[in-house]
Design a protein around this nucleic acid. Structure first.
Length: 590
DNA sequence: GCGGATCAG
DNA sequence: ATGGCTGATCCGC
């Protein structure tokens, strides 16, 4: 990154960094880059072949076994010592049990956690009434206003906050104060047990902080991403994310590149996203491996029941059911089905779940799970999806209202580009950009804070944590500029009501697929497909599942292609499950 | 939409 | 006897 005066807004540098990285790519041909990457990846266990996972797993097993065998009682003090200092040794329960046969496992007590969590939130509310709770034990709050009103520094407020939390709950906590949430989270980890760390809202300070920061510290960069970046590209710190921007552009999607570069610049979100609604609900269970069909079905019934119960508690009805399997050899599979109606009852869930399962058997399994998604949004109502969409359309009265989360903030104070934001959020997919998403920047007088706390209580409330960060007075969103390069987002819910005709007797007028006149059935199916597609598109204009729609819209050409292929090949093809759901043909039911 | 995978708490 | 479970997201198809 070149010269930047303090007056620079980070996003300007971001844009520069991005275009530089891109420009760096232009002179180079992709093959060459890929060759370089390939060279770099030699010695990395990551890109070698598909066997890597297997090898990795085998090695891990061996390590664990060896570890377990080596451990004796004399190791115990070591771990006890570690615990005393709050170091959490990652230790599987069975090893712990082997080490310490008398070990007492304290059962979880969520009522208690919720109670204490609520107490802490009461404190947070006094600092920021709109704070973001990310879990029972973590929250982000914007303390900008609080600081300004009282003429306090971030450091003072953090100390006061921790103190208040301690007095009112008896729990200690750790706090990080930083210009945005991404950084606040990192900061909250630095002085972990019962401490705080303040990163000034100062361009230089942020860049210095970032320059030596290991990438793994960043939320969103996990074990796998770290390995890839490290082994293949030699990226260890956030600063290097910028330096190797061109490679990132070559290797990763736009979205990911976007995210990586913004991390390299220390950018993060500062908005207060709309309350997120649950999108799926699931239940799964691990058991000792078995291939016994009746037994598996029994277990499946149990899981269906708990899922159904959970759904009833929350008043949820869903129409996409996903079966998750883990084989005895630890291979994980999922099989899903989307229905035309919303279901909730244990019987119905089981009906479809067992169809999915039976299609996979025989198989020896160690885990089964069921997930329900695609909820009906008006709770406890009638059964037809269409009713849902119409109803919610009438209620919301605004299609864009369904582009739920993460956009509201852009209206709040982003004076300038309002229309751009709006437009882009309505026609770009929120889903994709949710976690690697927009990089908003605080104005220089902003301050926000992250906080994390850990319980000192002995009964297992251990390790509750909390993070805070802030809202903004000023938001600049960057991605539009970049995203708009990529052009094709136009899709009208076109009302091309024409049935497909066969140009020259064999070319589909809509998609161009070629199909000889003798393929009568196939042609009929093909026409049906386009018809259904049309209907679906028309409907989806009003549908509340905006995200889904946009996704499919964005990828429309491929999606269609695939749908066609599937349709042609699937009836006899192995994995396709013939449950009523596939609404490619509108008339098919059961 | 589906399926495989990653990540976080 | 790979920690397990829940939920979310991404990517390619």
């Amino acid at each position: 990154m070149g010269t930047t005066s303090d007056g620079d807004r980070p996003w300007q540098s971001y844009h520069t960094a991005y275009t530089n990285a891109k420009a760096g790519m232009e002179g180079v041909d992709k093959e060459k880059v890929q060759r370089i990457i390939y060279e770099m990846s030699k010695g990395s266990k990551y890109f070698e072949n598909e066997k890597r996972k297997e090898a990795y797993i085998r090695q891990k097993v061996e390590n664990l076994r060896a570890q377990c065998a080596k451990l004796t009682d004399k190791d115990m003090p070591h771990f006890q010592e570690a615990r005393k200092f709050g170091v959490r040794a990652a230790m599987p329960g069975f090893i712990a049990h082997k080490l310490c046969p008398d070990l007492v496992f304290v059962p979880t007590n969520f009522e208690k956690y919720t109670y204490y969590s609520e107490l802490t939130r009461k404190v947070f509310r006094r600092y920021d009434s709109d704070f973001i709770a990310t879990s029972l034990d973590e929250a982000y709050l914007n303390i900008t206003e609080y600081c300004n009103e009282r003429g306090l520094s971030g450091e003072e407020v953090a100390a006061e906050l921790r103190n208040n939390v301690y007095e009112e709950t008896g729990l200690t906590c750790s706090v990080g104060v930083a210009p945005n949430r991404l950084l606040a989270k990192v900061c909250s980890d630095i002085n972990k047990p019962n401490g705080q760390y303040i990163l000034p809202n100062d361009r230089k300070a942020v860049m210095t902080f970032i320059s030596s920061l290991p990438i793994r510290k960043i939320g969103g960069i996990g074990k796998v991403t770290e390995t890839i970046l490290k082994d293949v590209l030699g990226i260890n710190t956030c600063e290097e994310l910028l330096q190797k921007g061109a490679f990132l552009c070559a290797l990763f999607s736009h979205c990911s590149t976007d995210f990586f570069l913004s991390v390299g610049l220390g950018l993060g979100r500062t908005d207060t996203p709309e309350h997120k609604l649950r999108k799926s609900i699931s239940s799964e269970r691990t058991f000792s491996s078995t291939g016994d069909e009746p037994l598996l079905l029994q277990k499946l019934a149990d899981i269906a029941e708990t899922l159904s119960n959970d759904m009833q508690k929350e008043c949820i009805w869903g129409r996409t059911l996903t079966l998750k399997l883990k084989t005895a050899s630890f291979e994980v599979r999922t099989r899903a089905v989307s229905l035309q109606k919303f279901i909730q009852s244990k019987e119905e869930i089981l009906t479809y779940a067992s169809k999915l399962l039976k299609a996979e058997l025989p198989l020896s399994l160690r885990l089964m799970g069921l997930r329900m998604s695609q909820f009906r949004d008006d709770k406890c109502g009638p059964l037809d999806p269409r009713q849902k969409t119409l109803a919610s359309f009438v209620v919301s009265g605004d299609v864009t209202a369904s582009a739920t989360f993460s956009d509201k903030h852009q209206i709040c104070d982003a004076q300038t580009d309002l229309s751009v934001h709006r437009e882009s959020s309505a026609s770009n997919d929120d889903k994709i950009s949710l976690s690697y998403e927009k990089n908003d920047v605080l104005a220089s007088d902003q301050l926000s804070c992250g906080l994390r706390y850990a319980s000192t209580s002995a009964d297992g409330i251990e390790n509750m944590g909390n993070e805070c960060s802030g809202k903004c007075d000023y938001v600049e969103t960057e991605n539009e500029m970049i995203r708009n390069f990529s052009g094709h987002k136009t899709i009208a819910a076109s009302s091309q009501k024409t049935e497909p005709s066969w140009v020259d007797g064999y070319i589909c007028s809509i998609c161009g697929i070629e199909m000889p006149p003798s393929f009568i059935e196939e042609r009929q199916e093909h026409s049906d497909y386009h018809l259904a597609e049309m209907l679906q598109e028309e409907e989806s204009v009003y549908v509340t599942e905006h995200l889904t729609q946009e996704r499919s819209v964005r990828k429309a050409p491929q999606a269609k292609e695939n749908a066609r292929k599937k349709q042609k090949t699937s009836p006899k093809g192995g994995k396709h499950i013939p449950i009523d759901a596939f609404f490619i043909k509108g008339k098919k039911s059961l």
